[in-house]
Design a protein around this nucleic acid. Structure first.
Lengths: 120, 120
DNA sequence: GTATCATATCAGTGATTGATGATACGATGA
DNA sequence: TCATCGTATCATCAATCACTGATATGATAC
């Protein structure tokens, strides 16, 4: 895959984006933009299973996108940095103009089938 | 996976981030931040195979992150919007502070093994 | 101490991803 | 026209991902 040295930190940057590149994780992060929530509150808000939310939170936490604050037997999660919010806001702004393209994108990052072709 | 209605466009946003969430694609996009390039120039710059670059460009193009401009038998690619550059710059800024966490992140978006655990 | 609640971890699995090599397509120049 | 260059597409495949269900851990209440 090359990038053995990766002096530009490309792999790390890619990881950050991939952290936000899953609907479930993004749903969690997006929900947290409204303020800190516990795991069970996130489970309710997102409709995902508890173990699924916990797994994704583990990823987001490891990646530094969210921080965890134990409160008794609950754990309160919040976005780790305002720039996480900014990142999503910027993406939304961009999507306002190129959304159609993204909808039609079926290569990689696809929903149904790989390497789908565009209109013939 | 829920998100049947997706009134917030979460799946689309996730796709956008995932478009940037692969080292090869990010390498291409990052290279294009320096200015428009043809496919073969991108092949040289990234060290990826021609078919691989072309496939990723197809994804990025479909997603609206880059635009293609045929020039004879070459095709010139460029970032479709300044905000694509801003998005990466913002991510870099964020990474300057949370990079360590991302390095250590081995869940999903992982490099070696799935659901890797943090230090025992 | 025991029961219960909240969260985290684990094993297993189907589906998706990203890469490769071969090939097709289209445009240019000889 | 033919050869060649530049790009796109295709088939295939190993590796990874995200999910589920079960279980472990840890904290509070009784």
């Amino acid at each position: 895959m090359l990038f053995t040295t990766d002096s530009t930190g490309l792999a790390v940057k890619a990881k950050l984006f991939r952290g936000l590149g899953d609907p479930s994780r993004l749903s969690i992060v997006d929900t947290l933009r409204g303020g800190p929530l516990t795991v069970s509150e996130l489970v309710t808000a997102t409709g995902l299973s508890q173990s699924n939310v916990s797994n994704h939170l583990g990823c987001l936490r490891d990646c530094g996108l969210v921080t965890a604050e134990p409160q008794g037997r609950r754990v309160l999660y919040r976005l780790s940095d305002d720039r996480v919010d900014e990142l999503i806001a910027l993406a939304e702004s961009l999507l306002a103009d190129v959304a159609r393209g993204v909808y039609e994108c079926t290569r990689y990052a696809a929903v149904n089938g790989t390497q789908g072709s565009r209109l013939p």
